[in-house]
Amino acid sequence: MTPDLDRLAARLALAADEAGQLDVAFTTVASPVGPLLLAATEQGLVRLAYAAEDHDTVLQSLADRISPRVLHAPARLAPAARQLEEYFAGHRTSFDLPLDLRLSSGFRRDVLDRLRDVAYGTTASYATLAAAAGSPRAVRAVGSACATNPLPVVVPCHRVVRSDGALGGYVGGAEAKRTLLTLEAAA
């Protein structure tokens, strides 16, 4: 877009937000693990997606599951973008953002709650998380919860590894998981 169109789009997004006509705001940010899509409702950050997830598909899913009123509105996401930038620069070890976890429920939501207890620079096994979530035999279900985590990086599913120490899967791909764990180990 041209600078004039950028300014117009920003003004329209702000006006829609102020009028209560913006249900899901989104933006993309550059990162060492590729472009990340950030989306937020008025309640908080609702989605963070890797390019491998296809940002257009993610936006359509948000329109289907939350509201069709989805708009590129970076202002609402400025705090999240800033905290992610600080994290990737090695200056932040946890996120202090309001989160909207409506895209997860039941056992998956319990797992997400436990993921936030896995400290920066450490890892936990899928089995450990299953036990912490109250279902020690639900190791595969923990893997499924991590794979469908709507807020990877912020809700740190990349810190979950197999019991034998192998990385295991990751929504952003093995290289992204390795990059995040290396970043945290260097701190």
Rank of each mutant, 00 (worst) to 15 (best):
T123P: 09
S94H: 09
L112Q: 12
Y50S: 15
A127G: 12
D100V: 04
A10M: 04
P98I: 06
R114L: 08
L36T: 02
V160K: 01
A9W: 09
A49Q: 09
G169P: 07
V154N: 06
H91G: 09
F107Y: 13
N149E: 02
L129H: 09
S61L: 15
D113R: 07
R116C: 10
S144K: 09
A131S: 14
T41K: 06
F95P: 10
V142L: 04
V160Y: 02
D17S: 15
C157V: 03
L181Q: 11
T122K: 07
G34S: 07
R11L: 14
R92V: 08
V46L: 11
R92G: 00
D110K: 15
E86M: 13
A9K: 10
T27E: 10
A185Y: 04
S163R: 12
A131M: 03
E42A: 15
Y126N: 11
L71P: 00
E53P: 06
L77G: 01
L12G: 02
A52D: 11
P35V: 07
A145G: 04
L77I: 06
R76S: 08
R108A: 14
R47Y: 00
A10L: 10
D100N: 07
V155W: 00
V155F: 10
V118T: 06
V139P: 02
V111N: 06
R109V: 02
Y50Q: 12
P150F: 07
A51T: 08
L36H: 00
C157R: 03
R159D: 13
L103F: 06
T122H: 13
A39M: 05
I66L: 14
L62D: 03
V118W: 03
A10G: 00
Q21C: 15
A15F: 15
G121D: 02
A147F: 11
L37D: 04
L183P: 11
A131D: 12
A130Q: 09
A124G: 13
G173H: 01
L97Q: 01
A75R: 04
N149T: 04
V155P: 14
L129M: 12
T123I: 07
A13C: 02
D164L: 09
P152T: 01
P150D: 08
A186W: 09
G106S: 05
R76V: 12
D17N: 11
V29A: 12
G34A: 07
R102W: 06
R116K: 05
L37W: 01
Y170L: 11
S61D: 12
L151R: 05
A40W: 00
H55V: 13
T93F: 11
A19H: 11
L103W: 06
H158Y: 12
V29H: 05
G173V: 03
H91Y: 03
R162W: 00
R11P: 02
A130E: 03
K177E: 03
A166I: 03
R92N: 02
R11G: 04
G90Y: 09
S144R: 11
P35M: 04
R82K: 14
Q43P: 03
V24F: 05
A185R: 08
